[in-house]
Every structure is written in C-alpha cells, then in structure tokens.
C-alpha cells in the first residue's frame, strides 16, 4: 500500500482542525466540565459507587440516544420511541403474567411488535413524504392511548405486574437487568448493553456501506438517490432500529421493576433527542455521532444523580438540561457553518 505524501497546505493546522470538526467535541468538553463540577461538590459522586450510580440512568438513556442519533443523522425524528419502551414492556409483562407465556416468548412478541411499529413509521414517512415529526407524533399519541386503554381494559388498573413469577424470569433478569461486580462495586449489566450498542452503531456509521448511506440520506436525499443509494430502505431500517432499541430498553425496565406503568416512557422521547443533539447531531440531519449521543447520555446521568448527591433540589435538573441543550445547539451551528462554508 503506497501512501502519497501529505499536502503541504494541511500541515500543522490539520490536527486541530480535524479535532474541531468532530461532532463529539462539544459533548466531551461538556462531560468533563459537568464531572469536574459535581466531583467538587460531592466526594461520593466521584467514588466508584457514585460512578455506578450515575452510569445506571445513562445506560438506558444512552441505548435510546444512540439509536435516535442514527435516525437523526439519517434526517428523521421519532417521537414515538419513548412511549414504545412502555408498549413493549406492557406487551411482554401482560403476555407473561396474564396469558402465562414463557418470558422469552413474550419478549420475542414484544420485539416483533416493535419492529412492525418501526416499519410502519418508516413506511409512512417514506411513502407520504410527510415530516417524520408529524408522522411519529401521530403514532406517539396513538400508542399512548393504546397503552392506557388496553391496560385498563385487561387489568382494570393502570399497571401490569407480577413478572417475577413468569417462567424464564431468572435467566432474562440476569441477562438484561442484573448486575456485574467489579472491584466490589455493583454495576448494572445494562451498562454493558449500552457500550455494546454504542460500539455497534459507531462501526455501522463509520465503517459500513449502510453508514455512508445514513449520512447521505440525511445530508441530501435527492443527491443520494441519484447515485443509487436505497434511500427508502435506509430510512425504514433506521426507524426499525429505534424501535428495536425501544424494545431492548422496555424489556430492561420491565425486568428491573417486574411491573410496567401504562404511562411508562412518555416524555422520554425529547430526552433522547436532547442527548443526541448534545452529542453533536444536527436537527437537519446528515451530521452527528453515536459516541457523542452516548456522552450526551452520560452528561444527563451525571446531572440527574449529581444534583441529588450535591443535596440540591431536583427541580434544578430541568434548568440545567435546557441550558446544556442551548449551548450544544449553538456550538453545533458553528461547526455546521464551518463545514459548509464555500470558498469560491
């Protein structure tokens, strides 16, 4: 393999420039700042127990944020992703407790349903060419109604519970909702799932054909189609990916609490988008990173638990989240300007 000599014009400034246009940059700086801040406020925060504590909310959020980041890079939104975590959990618990299904079979049924909903979302967006914001807002509201209506009709209450008695619970619990002990500290096993999802998504984005297509359909769908990129297929697959992630998180949550509320997951959809945006995703698509979205989730987890560790009122959390979002979006806009500037 011959390597051509580097152009003399990219010497020196190249590294800094390359670093600056990384989509993750803002979130890395933000994460370091937030960690430093809460570490100085509370010694527990920086202890191993503390880390295990704030990595827990970061993990389930991170799995979703990574999937949403892929979708956003592909130029679409999914507002139904949050409520879908509730739907899949409800289906799984209902089938396992009320109808006596084996838990693994119930989980599989949840996956099939999630894939079907993701496919329907994608197909609607691709066929109607309506903004995905509207299409998935529609499915979001429909699922919200279904979750409540069906749960009430079947159980007479707004929750399903008793998963612990289901056949196959112990194995599934260990796999998705258990913990691993590292150096005497219990870490949730969901953290491993999160790391795995992030690694897989990063590989797909950076090192697979599909990754190239995702960037392309989000950057300029017409141009992508003109050079033979299967744009519709790519987008539908992305919606099915977020649905699969919602199923994974819904199953983790259901196994952890052994019950699911009918309103589970509602309101989370924006948190996923916020984490993805803090991680460098552009709202207009075509740019972003899976690692960035994961780091966005870490910031979220640190702030969520850090405020409690520091002994503050949890109300401050929302303020903090809003400020992070604004800062991140402003930083992203600068990056985009820089990347798109045309020198004539």
């Amino acid at each position: 393999m011959t390597s051509l000599p580097a152009d003399e014009r990219i010497a020196g400034a190249g590294l800094l420039r390359r670093l600056l246009i990384r989509p993750e940059l803002g979130s890395v700086v933000g994460a370091i700042a937030v960690f430093a801040f809460f570490s100085s406020q509370s010694p527990v925060f920086r202890s191993a127990d503390g880390v295990a504590n704030w990595l827990d909310p970061a993990s389930t959020l991170g799995i979703m944020a990574v999937a949403i980041a892929l979708l956003m890079i592909g130029g679409e939104f999914d507002l139904s992703a949050g409520v879908l975590t509730g739907t899949t959990g409800l289906v799984m618990v209902t089938l396992a407790t009320k109808y006596g299904w084996n838990l693994w079979a119930a989980m599989l049924a949840g996956l099939v349903l999630a894939l079907a909903i993701g496919f329907a979302n994608g197909l609607l967006v691709v066929r109607t060419k309506l903004p995905s914001f509207i299409v998935t807002l529609g499915t979001f509201l429909m699922l919200q109604g279904l979750n409540l209506g069906v749960t009430k009709a079947l159980t007479g209450t707004v929750q399903v519970s008793g998963l612990r008695r289901a056949e196959g619970y112990d194995g599934a619990q260990a796999l998705l909702a258990g913990s691993v002990t590292v150096g005497g500290v219990d870490f949730r096993v969901a953290i491993l799932w999160w790391i795995g999802v992030t690694a897989l998504a990063t590989w797909v984005l950076m090192r697979s054909r599909a990754g190239n297509w995702i960037f392309a359909v989000g950057g300029n769908e017409q141009a992508a189609r003109a050079v033979g990129v299967p744009a519709a297929r790519t987008k539908i697959a992305l919606f099915m990916t977020t649905a699969t992630a919602a199923w994974l998180v819904g199953s983790i949550m259901a196994l952890r609490f052994t019950s699911v509320q009918a309103n589970a997951g509602i309101g989370q959809e924006f948190i996923y988008i916020i984490a993805a945006v803090i991680g460098g995703c552009l709202l207009t698509g075509g740019y972003g990173s899976a690692i960035g979205a994961s780091i966005g989730a870490v910031i979220f987890g640190m702030a969520d638990k850090g405020i409690v560790f520091a002994g503050w009122d949890a109300d401050w959390f929302k303020f903090f989240l809003g400020a992070m979002l604004l800062l991140a979006t402003l930083a992203n806009r600068l990056v985009r300007r820089y990347a798109e500037e045309v020198r004539r």
Binding site: F215, A216, V227, A339, E340
Partner: peptide, 23 residues
Amino acid sequence: YQDLAMIPLMSVWRNFFLGSEPV
C-alpha cells in the same frame, strides 16, 4: 448535473464512493 450529486457535509472520499462503496 449542474446541481451535482454531492453531499456537502460528507468528506470527499465518502462522496466519491457514495452508492458504490468498496467492501
């Protein structure tokens, strides 16, 4: 075409092989 099948936010090499990526 005049309006080019190019994606501004993607790198030159990603654009070059877009739709015909070597595997």
